[in-house]
Amino acid sequence: MDNNKPVITIRDLRMRYGERFVLNGIDLDVYQGQIIGYIGPNGAGKSTTVKIMLGLVEGYTGEVRILGTDIAGDSMDYKRKIGYVPEIAEIYDTLSAQEYLTFIGQLYGMREDDADRRSRYLMEILGLKDVFGSRVSSFSKGMKQKVLLISSLLHNPDILFLDEPLSGLDANSVMVVKEILALLAEQGKTIFYSSHIMDVVEKISSRIILINGGRIVADGSFVELKEQNHEGTLEDIFNQLTGFNEHRSLAEQFVSVVNEVRI
């Protein structure tokens, strides 16, 4: 269901930390309703891209437009249409889930009672009704992840940025969240999803973008990537495109070192 007008356009995006270039010219158009699986090895520039789009990182060159707005300007209104799930550590965990969620809702400009009511419902649906008033610091990894997911969706955003959104969730919750993402995309929301778990990316993404060394090295649906690369799984494609074929020999080395010790 690609529309003609992209919701995100990135042109020649480059970013440098000190001497090191993290992004070397990214060009990308993202259309409404897509679920983008944004993958790449550690240090490839995945999270930098996402952080630039959220306005967390400055000092890039090139152009980034989200919903038609150039984000380099002082405008921050585009952020009202964005939801963001950061890594687990990024949460004020001395607050209760209720306090945290209403706070976030209000930062997006919602009314307090409205934010409270909606977050209560959403918590209840995800099975966290009883801990709504408890401090987030007492939550398990999976529970925190659910809180973060709710906080990113409270204000009904058009674009969703997710950083490893399934980590810590049990198998049943994973199914629920995957279903939620699919439904949201069906309704025209755009989801930008970065993860290291290839199986999940392979299943839920409508389009996969692989970056390596600050460049896009593959872009297309899983089927398209498979045809281009003649490989079986996304994992294999990932290994091939990032030029990584030593896994067997590294594993052999590792095990042989482990075996050296005899007590």
Binding site: L54, G55, L56, D74, M76, D77, Y78, K79, R80, I82, Y84, P86, E87, A89, E90, I91, Y92, I104, L107, Y108, G109
Partner: peptide, 13 residues
Amino acid sequence: IRDKNILYSKPLN
């Protein structure tokens, strides 16, 4: 440092 991710990603100047 949590401030950065939590607050700067919100519509705040």
